[in-house]
Write a protein that binds this DNA or RNA. Structure first.
Length: 415
RNA sequence: CGGGGAGUAGCGCAGUCUGGUAGCGCACCGCGUUUGGGACGCGGGGGUCGCAGGUUCAAAUCCUGUCUCCCCGACCA
């Protein structure tokens, strides 16, 4: 990608009303644009980060037999009435609208009801189960107050997975696989060492639901953490009894601020019973399906990562989610320009993701922008580097640069 | 929804008290000089002053209404 052709640009200032660190960084660097309170546009760079995160999640969900699909955003009122979640008194974040014929439709804030109902068309026998489906979807929620940049918005992308199992045991086995898959996702993204399995309020069916909470000063949740055991208890359910029931020593728990990046829970058979999702067992008897739900906040993850990996100069993306791996700068000088052009073609052809700063701005401006955009590796081509025998390479996380020979650059970057 | 703050160029702001040609910085355009850490000179373009109504010879400024945004709280993937 040539910066000279990019329609986005970096800025010094950000809107005064934007307070959160993640949104300030992402807006300054041109990753997102604020459309209105709690609603952000994903600009090309931001979209690439989102796609990187989605791909990691997709691979791990596929690895535990998830089947990807995409539900609709317009939803039927009748479905939500069956589970008593249509009324604004029950769910206060609904956006609703009407069809031309006057009938009401809901704008998707969740997809549990529709996905369960849809699956009724395909699930009829124990032979059809278990099934694991998931999607990446835009959720629309009429939040009372959006805040914390892209951490709490009215429109956001979420991965939601649903497990349909025949028995409680079968459900539990998958639940454990999902927990492992979640840790793999967070590990690949680079935040697993700061992300903790957390016990939170359950429902009618189970005592607890489980959250994946990432240590973050600007997070919105509070948990009590045992960093050795890597377990936490959400403040909303914290008590002596809960701590001891989980074999955690209350005295050793540390109260910390976190951001919720994942949430999984067990519906038991209640949702299936309400919506009539049943299967015939071996004896021909109708049985309700055991349902589990597994969410990951995709856009929120981008905000968490942006905030966690940044310094006073800008973003410092982990390789796995960086929009581009290399930031190539051509400094002034006809030979440097020529070499940089050739290098850009060479790397792009080799499949290396490159941001190429071919704008010819002042060196300081280009260096500052490279730091702000946060690609893991910076390459500089200048008369000076060429005279020294090649290109200058510097990692975003490091202070020092070194010269690599022209011949070996592609091999070094491909790894 | 309670408390607080703010709407003037893409962004950041001054001007409002005391009505009288709508300004500054960044960004943008042109020319030239620059180019290893956010360069400089000269010249330029860009505004229904959130919206509606009222007072007045005259409203960004005064009055009334209204909309929106932000922060704190409660709530929440």
């Amino acid at each position: 990608m040539r910066l000279s052709q990019s329609f986005t640009r970096t800025t010094h200032g950000v809107p005064a009303d934007e307070q959160s660190r993640n949104a300030k960084l992402l807006i300054k660097a041109g990753y997102i644009h604020k459309e209105m309170a709690g609603v952000y546009v994903l600009l090309p760079l931001g979209l690439r980060v989102i796609e990187k995160i989605k791909q990691i999640v997709r691979e791990e969900m596929n690895a535990i037999d998830g089947q990807e699909l995409q539900m609709s955003s317009l939803q039927r009122k009748e479905l939500w009435q069956k589970t008593d979640r249509w009324d604004d008194k029950e769910v206060d974040i609904w956006f609703k609208s009407k069809l031309r014929n006057g009938s009401e439709v809901g704008l998707a804030w969740s997809h549990e009801e529709p996905i369960v109902d849809m699956l009724k068309n395909f699930i009829s026998s124990y032979r059809d189960l278990p099934v694991y489906v998931y999607q990446f979807q835009t959720k629309l929620r009429n939040e009372i107050r959006a805040k914390s940049g892209i951490l709490r918005t009215r429109e956001f992308i979420m991965k939601d997975m649903y497990s349909l199992s025949r028995t409680a045991d079968e459900h539990e086995a998958f639940y454990q696989r999902a927990i492992e898959a979640y840790h793999k996702v967070f590990k690949r993204i680079g935040i697993d060492d700061k992300t903790f399995f957390t016990f939170a309020s359950g429902g009618a069916f189970t005592q607890f639901s489980h959250e994946f909470q990432t240590l973050l000063a600007s997070g919105e949740d509070t948990v009590y953490l045992d960093e050795i055991k890597k377990r936490a208890i959400n403040a909303e359910v914290m008590s002596d009894e809960v701590a001891s029931s989980l074999s955690l020593d209350k005295a050793k728990l540390e109260k910390v601020t976190v951001a919720e990046v994942g949430n999984i829970f067990n519906f038991g058979t209640t949702k299936a019973e309400q919506l009539g999702l049943q299967f015939s067992d071996k004896a021909g008897q109708k049985q309700p399906v055991f349902l589990g739900s597994y969410g990951i906040g995709i856009t929120r993850l981008m905000g968490v990562v942006a905030e966690l990996f940044a310094d006073d100069k800008g973003l410092v993306w982990p390789e796995a989610v960086a929009p581009y791996q290399v930031h190539l700068i051509a400094l002034s000088g006809s030979q440097a320009k020529k070499s940089a052009e050739a290098l850009y073609d060479q790397l792009t052809t080799a499949g290396v993701e490159v941001i190429y700063d071919d704008r010819g701005d002042s060196a300081g401006k280009m260096f500052a922008d490279a730091d702000l955009l946060g690609a893991p590796i910076r390459l500089v081509v200048s008369e000076k580097s060429l005279a020294a025998g090649g290109y200058e390479i510097k990692h975003r996380k490091q202070e020092t640069a070194k010269i690599v020979p022209v011949d070996s650059i592609v091999d070094i970057l491909r790894r």
